[in-house]
Nucleic acid binder design. Structure first.
Length: 460
RNA sequence: GGCUGGGUGGCAGAGGGGUUAUGCAGCGGCCUGCAAAGCCGUGUACGCCGGUUCAAAUCCGACCCCAGCCUCCA
């Protein structure tokens, strides 16, 4: 029985899909005006893990992750760069796909782009106006009338009075209420726009997701996800819009992933403390980033640091080391570990416990000694199978262990040459030369291991 | 100020009324020419103050501290 924490009820609840065996998920994706950072990576990886796990449980999953390709930041950035909006968004969508692919993230089944749904957006806004939830403001923009929607603030645990008391909402003359938010923004003469009943303009951010999710998954669907910061106002507004337009419940379960932090502060553009995925990939293997992120619970904050990434690399190397040289292709699985794995994953996707379990399996393999024994092969197959559900341990062990980013100044051939020289020295009992050659490699991040089958190497 | 979530050993990070988390680092040992890897053993812990209980890191209450949201944000 799968239990998932629902932000709306602030508790774990049993997951019951609307249609048995089928799951529909919508996740708020990326606004494409810059490279993705590690925070985006966490969102991508968390929901990748969720869909992978649901599929491993034989659910037929439809995973939708949108792209916001029209918005003020995009317009401004295109203007700064002196390029067209399409050129800018195409460029960063390609970059996003490149980064996501590198991290082994399975592409969503449907990836709607806001600009492809203008008709649906306009239709939904019209519906909201006719249903009495929206109005045309003094400046020609269309606004959502928050006071008309009962339960506004329920998802984020806020009430309208508190929000007003916060007084951080910008006062805008055109609105009836400072809390009202824009659905359709009139275009200034030099801005892009689409024709609409309210003149040329573009959609507000929130309405995009309402229109795209309803169009791709239906008026009510199973899971809606996104980063924690989207709870308010974005998801709150989505609920108000979709329910206002359809008169039906919107989603059954809200999932929000925690943030990546740097020095105990949220990683963000405004703080200037963000690291892009591609920058981090220069120093660490993609699987290390995945392992790092899955090493904590998806709702917990997670601190990014060089030390933590290094540790993730070491821990993952331990797992790969355990299955090194074991042929596991024909072996069966250890059902006790499989059952335990599902037990922890069914508790709100406790990937940290799952990773702990992988370490326990690795330890069992190491204890087994003879790595061609039936027991070792069964455990290795289990380790690889369970790791695979998390998107881990699918590489060849020697490939992972040798393809680290340290010691990249020395080629495999050079390493092998030094190993050969050292073997010669060793056979002549010239240990001081042998040690000197080994130290030389260690200085370049290459670790040698003398085994019964000869000397093998890996990157530290 | 309001609303959420949290404070765990040297570090990271789970768990969550009585039984080893796990990983990294440390220490002792085995193995090794020496290492590495691995194995065995080992230490350090649950913010503070009360309460409930045979028993509290775990439940309850107060307090202190931190983070997130309340504005664009994954």
């Amino acid at each position: 029985m799968l239990n998932i924490y629902n932000t709306l009820s602030r508790s774990k609840q049993e997951f019951k899909p609307m249609q048995p065996g089928k799951v529909s998920i919508y996740v708020c994706g990326i606004t494409v005006y810059d490279y993705c950072h590690l925070g985006h990576a966490r969102m991508l990886l968390v929901f990748d893990m969720v869909t992978r796990y649901l599929r491993a449980c034989d659910y037929d999953v439809t995973y939708v992750r949108n792209i916001t390709d029209i918005d003020d930041k995009i317009i401004n950035r295109a203007r700064e760069n002196n390029e067209t909006i399409t050129a800018l968004t195409d460029r960063f969508i390609a970059a996003m796909n490149q980064d996501a692919d590198a991290l082994g993230i399975i592409r969503p089944d449907i990836e709607p782009r806001a600009t492809g749904f203008i008709a649906q957006i306009i239709a939904m806004i019209s519906k909201l106006i006719s249903n009495g939830y929206a109005y045309v403001g003094a400046n020609g923009d269309v606004f959502y009338d928050v006071s008309q929607f009962e339960g506004y603030g329920k998802l984020s645990g806020k009430n309208i009075e508190d929000l007003r008391a916060g007084e951080r909402v910008e006062i805008q003359e055109a609105k009836n209420d400072p809390l009202d938010f824009v659905l359709w923004k009139s275009a200034k003469p030099d801005e892009p726009g689409w024709e609409s009943p309210w003149g040329a303009g573009r959609p507000g951010w929130h309405i995009e997701c309402s229109a795209m999710s309803v169009d791709t998954l239906g008026e009510t669907f199973d899971i809606h996800g996104g980063g924690q910061d989207l709870q308010f106002p974005h998801h709150e507004n989505e609920i108000a819009q979709t329910c206002g337009a359809t008169g039906k419940p919107f989603v059954n379960l809200w999932m929000h992933n925690g943030f990546i932090r740097v020095d105990d502060e949220k990683m963000s553009k405004s703080l200037g403390n963000f690291f892009t995925i591609r920058d981090v990939l220069k120093a660490y293997q993609p699987e290390v980033i995945r392992f790092f992120i899955l090493s904590s619970h998806y709702r917990s904050p997670l601190n990014y640091s060089d030390a933590n990434l290094k540790e993730a690399r070491t821990a993952l190397a331990r797992l790969y080391t355990a299955i090194r040289d074991i042929t596991d292709d024909t072996a069966t699985h250890d059902q006790a570990f499989i059952a335990k794995f599902h037990e922890v994953m069914e508790d709100d996707f406790n990937t940290r416990e799952a990773v702990t379990l992988l370490h326990e399996i690795a330890h069992e393999i190491n204890k087994a000694g003879d790595n061609q024994s039936e027991r070792a092969r069964t455990l290795a197959a289990t380790l690889r199978y369970l790791g695979g559900i998390l998107g881990l341990l699918q590489d060849k062990p020697e490939n992972f262990l040798q393809s680290g980013k340290t010691g990249s100044g020395v080629t495999n051939d050079q390493i092998q040459q030094l190993i050969d020289e050292r073997a010669m020295a060793k056979s002549q009992k010239n240990f001081s030369l042998a040690d000197q050659l080994r130290d030389q490699l260690v200085g370049q991040g290459i670790i040698l291991e003398d085994t019964s089958k000869g000397t093998i190497w890996r990157r530290s």
